[in-house]
Simulated assay, not measured.
Amino acid sequence: HGARFAKWRAVIDIDARRPSAGSVKANAHALARYAAMCQEENIVPIVEPEVLMDLDHDINRCFEVTEYVLKSTFQALYEMRVQLEGIVLKPNMVIAGRKAKVQAGVDEVAEKTVQCLKNTVPSTVTGIAFLSGGQSDIDATAHLNAMNAMHALPWNLTFSYGRALQAAPQKAWSGKEENIEAAQAAFYKRAHMNGLASLGQWSRELEDK
């Protein structure tokens, strides 16, 4: 029917004991089978292993679990003979849980996320499009910008945000027809800010213009 991309999202809960090895292995296998079937039909698979940020884990626990999940996923992709040049990886950033007492700063999130990716993602993967995972609009933009501004990377780092793109236009719209233009303007601004962040050219000052 003309489809060119497909997406499979595997959700990984995280706390002191989760995820289990069985859960990670099962999700990695499912992602790899899906990716292989997509490529057989000339569809680009978006591979999305998401470690959630809902609870109170710190950033180091997120690093540990994300590294494990990505290593397992790429091992499964290799075993299924998936061509890594033909996938888009859609991972979470390495970030403290929403309920954590200590929230990491922008630079620490960028450093730990890039290090985790370097530890796990082959350079043959051409595109990494982050999910926002419940981050605020500004945080999601700032983290992406810091990664691109601070590091020389073997992959293109960009965004595939849901909430961090939609929240502002939905608030501006509020279900009222007279607010449609304001909602469109809000959506354009968030897309533009994140576009700049994908080039490492965003700054907080631009948000006020």
Rank of each mutant, 00 (worst) to 15 (best):
G105T: 07
V44R: 09
T158H: 10
E50Q: 12
E48K: 02
A96V: 06
P49K: 01
C38W: 07
I138P: 01
I138V: 14
C38Q: 08
V69F: 01
V94Y: 04
Y78D: 14
D54K: 14
T141F: 00
L52N: 02
N119P: 07
V69Q: 01
P91S: 08
M80L: 13
V106N: 09
G127C: 14
T141L: 05
A36I: 00
V44E: 11
A110Y: 02
L89K: 04
D56M: 06
E64T: 10
A129S: 13
T158D: 11
C116L: 04
C62M: 13
P49D: 02
I95L: 08
C38K: 01
D107W: 10
M93Q: 09
E48R: 02
Q39R: 12
L153C: 03
A164Y: 05
I95M: 02
M53H: 03
G86R: 14
E111D: 15
G133P: 00
L165Y: 08
G127I: 14
S123Y: 12
T66F: 00
N145M: 05
D56V: 00
I59G: 03
T126A: 13
G105E: 10
L52G: 05
K112P: 00
G127D: 14
Y78P: 13
T141E: 05
L84F: 14
A96S: 15
V106Q: 09
E79N: 15
N119V: 08
Q135G: 01
E79C: 09
K112L: 10
N148Y: 01
F63G: 10
C116G: 01
R98Q: 12
A100W: 02
H143C: 06
A36C: 11
L89Q: 07
G105F: 06
S123F: 10
V47G: 04
T126G: 15
D107C: 11
S160G: 10
P49F: 00
V51N: 00
N156A: 14
A146C: 06
Y78I: 10
I43R: 04
L52I: 15
Q115L: 13
Q115V: 12
F130Y: 06
E85V: 09
V121R: 02
T66E: 15
G162C: 08
L144D: 06
Q39I: 03
L157W: 03
M37P: 00
T66D: 13
A152M: 12
N42K: 15
A36D: 13
V121S: 09
G133N: 07
W155Y: 09
F74R: 04
C38N: 09
M93D: 05
